[in-house]
Amino acid sequence: RKESAFKSMLKQAAPPIELDAVWEDIRERFVKEPAFEDITLESERKRIFKDFMHVLEHEC
């Protein structure tokens, strides 16, 4: 699924995404990734990013 691929892309980011990361600041790192391009709505990208950050916070 496209959403899973997007989350995997975020999870495998190098360097890892920090807990205090803001979408607008890290977005540039992913613009050339196929998983990024597959999610065409920016609002959807932000939503998935927020979900990812929520999970990340609870893993720590």
Rank of each mutant, 00 (worst) to 15 (best):
E37C: 15
D25C: 08
S8P: 01
S4T: 15
D51S: 09
K2Y: 01
R29H: 03
R29A: 05
K50W: 11
K7P: 01
L19S: 13
E37S: 11
E57S: 11
E28T: 10
K46P: 00
K32V: 07
E33W: 05
S43A: 13
W23E: 01
V55C: 09
L41S: 13
F49D: 02
K32W: 08
A5K: 15
F49P: 01
I48E: 03
K2S: 08
L19R: 14
K46C: 08
E57D: 14
C60D: 14
R1S: 15
V22R: 12
L10C: 02
P15E: 07
K2H: 05
M9I: 05
Q12N: 08
S4G: 14
H58I: 09
I48L: 13
P34G: 08
D20K: 10
I39C: 04
K50E: 13
E59M: 04
H58W: 09
Q12P: 00
K32F: 09
R1N: 04
E28A: 13
M53H: 04
R29I: 04
R1L: 05
K2N: 02
A21I: 04
S8F: 06
D25E: 09
C60Y: 11
E18F: 08
S4P: 05
A14K: 10
K50M: 09
D51I: 03
L41C: 10
K7M: 09
D38S: 14
R45E: 01
E37G: 14
I26T: 10
P34D: 08
V55K: 15
K50D: 12
V22M: 09
A14E: 11
A5E: 15
K32R: 12
T40Y: 13
S4C: 15
P15C: 04
A5M: 15
D51K: 08
A35G: 05
R45N: 02
H54Y: 07
F6R: 00
F36H: 02
T40V: 15
E37I: 15
F6Y: 03
K11W: 11
R27K: 05
D25T: 11
F36L: 02
P34Q: 12
V22Q: 10
E33Y: 13
F49N: 06
T40C: 10
E59F: 03
L19Q: 14
M53E: 03
E44K: 03
S8A: 09
V22W: 05
T40G: 11
M53P: 01
L41P: 11
E3F: 02
F49C: 01
L56G: 11
R1E: 07
A21T: 14
I17S: 00
S43K: 12
K7W: 09
W23G: 01
K11H: 10
L56F: 12
L41D: 14
E24V: 05
R47A: 12
P16A: 11
E28H: 14
V22I: 08
D25G: 08
A13Y: 03
H54S: 12
R45V: 00
R29T: 07
L41R: 14
L10F: 03
E57H: 15
F6K: 00
F49T: 00
A21N: 05
D51Y: 05
K32Q: 12
L19A: 12
E37D: 13
T40P: 14
H54R: 14
M9W: 02
W23F: 01
R27M: 07
S4D: 08
R47Q: 14
R45W: 01
P34W: 03
V22C: 14
D51N: 14
V22E: 09
E44I: 03
F30T: 01
I39E: 02
M9Q: 02
C60E: 13
F36C: 05
L19C: 10
K11Y: 11
R27P: 00
V31F: 12
D38M: 13
P16T: 08
E3N: 03
E59D: 12
K7I: 10
V22G: 09
V31R: 12
L56A: 11
E37K: 14
P34Y: 04
A35R: 08
E44V: 05
P15I: 05
E59I: 03
E28G: 12
F49K: 00
E28P: 11
L19P: 11
